[in-house]
Amino acid sequence: SDIKVHVGDITVELHNVSEEFARLVEEALRLGLNEEQAKEWAHKALH
């Protein structure tokens, strides 16, 4: 599904992702990663 993740003043739109993936992206953003890094990190975490 499509999910918007908000962290501080950052909003990341995720398309066709699981809630778990979105949660991992949100966690990575909170750790200070940028959007691209957060998506990559979440992807690796799920595989």
Rank of each mutant, 00 (worst) to 15 (best):
E40L: 15
R23L: 10
A22K: 08
V17A: 10
H15G: 09
L46Y: 12
K44G: 09
R30M: 12
L46E: 05
E20D: 11
H6C: 08
V25E: 00
R23Q: 09
L46A: 07
E20S: 11
R23D: 03
A45R: 14
E35G: 11
D2N: 14
G8F: 02
L33F: 11
R23Y: 07
L31I: 09
E27Y: 15
G32P: 00
E27K: 14
H43F: 15
A22Q: 05
R30P: 00
L29P: 00
H15W: 04
L14Y: 02
E13Y: 03
H15M: 09
E26Q: 11
H15C: 07
A28Y: 10
L31F: 13
S18R: 09
V12C: 03
V12R: 02
L46N: 03
A22E: 03
H43M: 12
D2F: 13
E19N: 11
H47A: 13
E35A: 13
E27G: 05
H15S: 10
S18H: 07
L29Q: 02
E27R: 13
E36P: 06
A45C: 08
F21H: 02
I3E: 06
N34Y: 03
V25S: 00
H15E: 08
V7D: 06
L33R: 03
H43R: 13
S18D: 05
H6K: 10
S1I: 15
A22S: 07
E26G: 13
E36N: 10
A28Q: 02
K39Y: 11
K4C: 07
H47L: 14
L24G: 02
L46V: 09
A38F: 01
A22D: 03
V7R: 02
F21K: 00
V7K: 03
W41Q: 03
T11C: 04
V5M: 05
L29R: 04
H15P: 06
G32N: 03
E19A: 15
E27D: 10
R30T: 10
F21C: 02
L14P: 05
E19H: 14
L24T: 02
A22N: 04
V7A: 08
L24E: 01
V7Q: 06
D9G: 15
A45P: 00
N16D: 10
S18C: 04
L29H: 02
D9N: 14
H47I: 11
A42K: 00
V17M: 07
V12S: 05
K44R: 14
V7P: 05
S1W: 04
A45F: 15
W41G: 01
E20V: 14
H43V: 10
H47K: 13
T11K: 09
D9L: 11
G8N: 09
A28I: 01
V17F: 05
N34V: 03
D2K: 10
R23W: 08
A42Q: 00
L33V: 02
E40Y: 15
H43N: 09
T11P: 03
K39H: 04
K4H: 10
S1E: 12
A38H: 00
S18Q: 06
E35C: 06
L46D: 03
W41L: 04
A45H: 14
R30G: 09
G8S: 06
N34D: 12
N34K: 07
V12L: 07
E40T: 08
L29I: 08
D2Y: 12
E26D: 06
V25F: 11
A38T: 00
T11V: 14
D9H: 11
K39V: 12
L31Q: 11
E40N: 10
E27A: 14
L31N: 10
S18P: 06
E35V: 14
G8M: 03
K44Y: 13
N16G: 14
K4P: 09
L24D: 00
R30Y: 10
E26M: 15
H43K: 13
I10L: 13
H43I: 11
E40Q: 13
L29C: 02
V7F: 14
E26A: 15
H47C: 13
L24S: 02
T11E: 11
E35L: 15
N34P: 09
N16E: 08
V12Y: 01
V5N: 06
Q37L: 09
S18M: 07
K44A: 13
G32R: 01
K4Y: 04
I10T: 10
H47T: 12
S1R: 13
E40V: 10
E36V: 12
E35D: 06
A22P: 01
E26L: 14
A22G: 07
V25H: 01
L46I: 12
L33S: 02
S1P: 10
H15K: 11
V17Q: 07
I10C: 05
G32Y: 01
K4W: 04
D9E: 12
H47Y: 08
A28D: 00
N34E: 06
K4Q: 12
E19C: 11
A45T: 12
V12G: 05
E19M: 15
V17D: 05
E35W: 10
V5E: 06
Q37T: 05
A38Y: 00
L33A: 04
L24I: 03
I10D: 05
A42N: 00
L33C: 06
A45Q: 14
E36G: 09
K44L: 12
V5G: 05
V7S: 06
V12N: 04
K4M: 11
G32A: 01
V17I: 08
W41A: 05
W41D: 01
S18Y: 05
Q37S: 08
E19I: 15
E20R: 14
I3W: 08
G8L: 03
W41T: 02
S1K: 15
T11I: 14
E36W: 10
S1T: 14
E35Y: 10
E36H: 12
F21M: 03
N16Q: 10
L24F: 11
Q37H: 07
V5P: 05
A28H: 02
L46T: 07
E36K: 12
D2P: 13
D2Q: 11
K4D: 10
N16L: 05
G8E: 08
N16H: 11
R30H: 11
R23P: 00
L46K: 03
R23E: 04
E35N: 04
K44N: 13
G32K: 02
E27N: 07
V25D: 00
A28L: 04
R23V: 07
V17G: 04
F21T: 01
E19Y: 13
N16R: 04
V17P: 06
I10M: 11
H47P: 06
E27P: 00
E36I: 10
A42M: 01
I10Y: 08
V7T: 06
D9S: 13
E26F: 14
R23M: 10
W41E: 03
E26P: 00
S1M: 14
R30W: 12
I3Q: 09
E36F: 11
H43P: 00
V25G: 00
H43L: 13
H15D: 06
V17Y: 06
V12H: 06
